[in-house]
Design a protein around this nucleic acid. Structure first.
Lengths: 205, 205, 205, 205
DNA sequence: TATGAATGAGTATTCATTCAT
DNA sequence: GATGAATGAATACTCATTCAT
């Protein structure tokens, strides 16, 4: 019954939910959440409309799943970098580099994240919350600790947290949203440049 | 009924278009562009639905007008500050202070700006463009000039431009979107703190 | 403004809500509530679908309005007959005659009433209630009073009330639902025959 | 798993079709035919949706089977009573008592019968026909014969037939649909009271 | 036979926009 | 210009039915 996976190794197990998630991500990113129809998602995923609703409660539920997945993956990556216990400047650089790479790799997600981060009905408030309170608050703790250890100059850590995240985010947008020469140049050295900018802004005096 | 115009010749001239702009701003900010109906805007403005269409081509046109107005006011303010020919650090501080004040004053606009800046159909692309190319590009010129004059350290000015704008934006969001103690604290000293962060990040070595 | 009705005597004032009520009555009666689409109602009323929703909250609301209207008209007629203070047997006959006439006149309504009287979601419970409790309960009071005056034999008035209404209802259905010779015959003398049946069943011994 | 059939050869033979019939009866009665989904029936019967379609052509076919079963059982009971060749008044009483008992026993069926008796698509017309033509017509023959034998007064037997059935039906509804004290009282003596009402209405003068 | 995931035609409802008054 | 009833295209979501396992 569940040894199918072995016996029928050739029947590639397609996880319909994952299939739909990817299709929806692609379409949402191109047209935005509100301008995407259930039909479009179904067509992109090559399933029937009804199938969407066998896996998700409603359209919004698909978006939530997409955002959740992305958030979790990014958080995991950041935690892994932080866990390596590198010097502060190097940590910053690696985190920035990770986000940048991911943004460029996945323009779709970037567009989606940017466009829908606010003003999505009730159930999505939690993402606004995560993005503007939970994550920054965790960062505040890290910055505070670093200040206490004398690794950073003294300053309001909440302002710094947002300044750092915002700087990062904006550069990412520019690098991934357009495809001109400037964007290409940014992608190459943005991690280093941004790191230097941030590092100068927070290093001990 | 229609002799008002003569008797109250001096009465406050209520510009219907402006009335609608403000009503729409308020409703868009609360519910988002897509979840706001023409009826709601009309109700908020206390005019008939048809009246909206006497002043604006369509719903989107109202949003464009709102964004246009805000953009222009901000640009004017920034140009005025720049025109005062202050030292770089002071200039940065005043611009940041202006934006911060405005954000706090007008939470509605802030929410609107954040939520709708991307993914608005075709005709709104120009705002994405303005926000992510035009304004930064103008800033690049200024930064480049300052570097040439030795007032700033050498770095990729496009990265810096975005880093500065993004840092600013994110702190503003935090200060205006929530109303906790941290937000109040930020409002008081964010301009100085942010200025210091940015100044350290870009000042000549 | 409201002298239109006089000046424009030729522009027959069509009450859209009433227009829709009649159209819906006709379609519901032919296809049943669940098998009638909003489109069909709109088509029958010769208005746009949207117009339905300018006058009624939803499809069910149209049905409620239809049933309400019919109930009220019938109740008014019955009260008027009762008010004439005729001898009991004559009263019964006139009421039966009225219902019969109405049923035959308005087959549509008859079908509708029969078919949908139960099992319509929550908001329609009140009709089941009216039909099976409120109206019979009022009838019980009348029967009881008549028994006390010795005009009827003693019996459980609630059983009698339902027996009378049920007898009436069933004969009406037969007379209005089919169009054979028997139906025609029934229409002619059912009032007298039914009255006799009921009267024998309830007259004092 | 599938050796049950051997080990428990004597185990209660659960006829799936009968299982489904009962489940569907229960759900239809609670929600009405149109508001009941195949899923709900399957869940109530604790089988898979597909199983429904192994035993019934479609949803309507289930309803037909339910109505058929009930009709047949009632008809059989009535025939058996009639076959006992009792005096007319006693016959009436026993038939009424049987229906009343059945109605109280099986509220579900009662609700279903009432709510869906009309307006079910084409294939169900035959039940309307049975209920409003076939059964009454058979009753007419009986009444006519009884009149000829001088056991009943002369009157239009079709009107009488419907009057009797309708009276019965309505009292049953009241007794089974609500559960108040009046309902309980009715259940106890309705058979006798109704019989007396009908008997007075039809007995020879 | 039993299963239940997949299907996709079908429909109630919304809402931007128009236009006669 | 102002009004708001009327319009009807557009769309999320449902659910009876099928069929591969």
């Amino acid at each position: 019954m569940n040894d199918h996976s072995e016996i029928m190794a050739t029947s590639i197990k397609v996880d319909k939910k994952e299939l739909i998630r990817q299709a929806a991500l692609s379409v949402f990113a191109r047209h935005g959440f509100y301008s995407t129809t259930a039909q479009q998602i179904a067509a992109e995923a090559d399933v029937a409309v009804g199938t969407l609703y066998n896996h998700f409660k409603d359209k919004e539920d698909i978006l939530i799943h997409i955002l959740d997945t992305e958030m979790n993956e990014r958080q995991a990556a950041v935690l892994q970098i932080v866990g390596k216990d590198l010097p502060m400047r190097e940590q910053i650089k690696q985190i920035i580099a990770f986000h940048m790479e991911r943004a460029v790799e996945n323009k779709f997600m970037m567009r989606l994240f940017l466009g829908e981060e606010l003003h999505l009905s009730g159930k999505l408030e939690k993402f606004t919350y995560k993005l503007f309170k939970e994550i920054p608050d965790r960062m505040v703790l890290m910055l505070q600790a670093a200040m206490d250890r004398g690794e950073l100059r003294r300053a309001d850590p909440l302002v710094l947290a947002h300044a750092i995240m915002g700087a990062n985010r904006s550069v990412m947008v520019r690098a991934s949203l357009y495809d001109d020469d400037a964007a290409k140049r940014i992608r190459d050295h943005a991690a280093e440049e941004l790191t230097e900018f941030i590092w100068q802004g927070i290093k001990p005096t």
